[in-house]
Design a protein around this nucleic acid. Sequence first.
DNA 1: TTTTGAAGTCTCTCC
DNA 2: GACTTCAAAA
Length: 714
Amino acid sequence: MTTVRSRALAGRSGVGSLYSNLMHDDARVYPSRIREVEAKRTTDFAAELNPAQLRAATHADGPLLIIAGAGTGKTRTLVYRVAHLLERGIRPERILLLTFTRRSAQEMLGRAERLVGSMSRAVHGGTFHATAHRLLRRFGQAAGLPADFTIMDQSDAEDLMQLSRAKLGFSEKKKRFPKKATLHQVYSRHVNTEIPVPAILSEDYPQFREYEEDFSRIYADYTVRKSERNLVDYDDLLLFWAMLVESESALADRIASLYDHILVDEYQDTNQLQSRILRGMCRAHRNITVVGDDAQSIYSFRGATIRNILDFPAQFEGAAVVPLEENYRSTQPILDVTNTVISRAEERYTKNLFTKRTGGEKPWLVTAHDEQAQTRFVVDRILELHEEGVPLHEMAVLFRAGYMSADLEIELTARSIPFEKWGGIKFLEAAHVKDVLAFLRILENPRDEVSWYRLLMLMPGIGEATARGAIDSMALAGWASDAFGRYEPPPRARAAHAELVLLLDALRTNPTDAEGAVTMEIARVRRLYDDILRERYDRVEPRLSDLDQLQTIAGGYPSRAAFLSALALEPPQATQDFGFGAGSEDDVLILSTAHSAKGREWDAVFVIWAVDGWFPSARSLGSEEQIEEERRLMYVAMTRPRNHLFVTYPLNVYDTRRGADYSMDQLSRFIDRGVREGMQRVVVDRPESAPPDPAAGPLPVVDLRAMLKGRFGA
DNA sequence: TTTTGAAGTCTCTCC
DNA sequence: GACTTCAAAA
């Protein structure tokens, strides 16, 4: 959900863009520069695309399915298709480009701009959720949604679910009653896949089948709570959108008629609900283009189903299907290996990826003695490649889960190699950030029970019972703005109560639309909160600097509401910047989860922790389907590099799951014999001078680890 | 009723 | 190894 211009304004944090699109929804004012664009050469599509890409890009009206293998120029084709539509005279604001992440929307619209000029800025682009948000802000009221709803992120939703769980009495001793995260997961799965809750329980949570009725009761309560408190969760965004466009109403027609062409990227990762939305949006025309690769479907955990891509021709009769099979990214040796990896999977649209990029080195399979050896190998090799002229930002280290890069991060920090981390634990999930935001949220939405609860519990002398009493009293008073002030706390909470009342009053009287108002509000909150933070945590410096950063980010938003919505939908993507290289550094190494790496490419890629139980993750080993998804994820990771691929795995892992001892680990099952045949092997041993000098070595390293934990942990 | 300490749970991927 | 939940002490 962004335009190129807003991206530039937002800077590297990647937030700040949502607002600009909210504000420039349809009445866009065209600058005079547009005319200069008209004069620009028209694009020579035939010269710049291969025949299949050309067919897809210049496809006229009607449904189109592009099956795009890894590295086959999928983005390029989509960008050219947008360009083609614009050159045909379609108005840019009548094109909707739905992408999977905010990052890919930014990239595509940026590239489209280079092709056809600034006109493409007016194309509406963004994730399903961000687009839903924009539409609901505009049309939601007509559908009975309050105008000022607050978006809950996942952990907010879980917390609210917990309130329902507690209220219905399930927090008592009942053994093995599902926890809030599980409750929410099942709920979300139900909404996104439309599979009935009992079926989900039987299939994936047989141990909780006996609680079937309790699930329903909690969900009913949760739903009521949301509407009473003006809250909307991620799933609601999609659900309401679907309901809006599926209804037989003038409003539905109006929304569906906003766009003449809809393009959807990463279609293999959409779910049933999203498919319904698309059908609704296309009720007046059938100009839908979807791009996907069934071999790269890696989001079934959030309800995605490859049925959407497989059934597309049936759902949209007469759909043209264009496969893209020429890989432009990787060298032949890399392609050989990745083709073997994916050949073990059953896929429905079989593609034969080929490349003209013959030559190049075979991918490396690196056996490291242990984690440290693996880290050292990766860092050394990165430095070598850098010496050879590969910029840092052309290299990436990929792993299954965010925490697996901890050792590497320490080493990179110690060696002053700047890096940026994608995915994994997010800034916003840190407890202290959520604490501060809770203040802003109750100002924005006084009924936000979850935030009230969080905030009250922070105060000395206020515990669960007192917090509940205060909230009940406010509910009784109809959530009037002075309800908290009139609440009479028990004696030991009086001081805290008085202080809070003072703070909230001060904040309420602040103008909320002035320049930098949100930053000011946070500063004011911190006059109270920083002391609490110092009390609660040992290491406060990294946490305080997180709050500094939050203040800075807030400066980019004109209102509290815009700030909070954007944080839910487009959280700051990278948690990095340990003091050096922050801000101005462009040439940074990328550390990323395999999921977050999808759709990207680098010159050199390291896939670390290729250990069975890590990648594939141990959690997936129970079902064949999940292992298949892990295989596709490995395929995604290994198809990212253009020229250099390293797959590394440590032999000895200090694995606490198996009883705090060193254990021998095995290479990932996906790197089987056939795959290994296409690779060259290297073994990295423990260094000769094993233990570092105790006087110089260990101390700072230990310190750094603590610092990282303080930084990322809650 | 709140706070603190200890036992217990489960490890992810993302909008 | 970190977070949640439970039980006992203040």
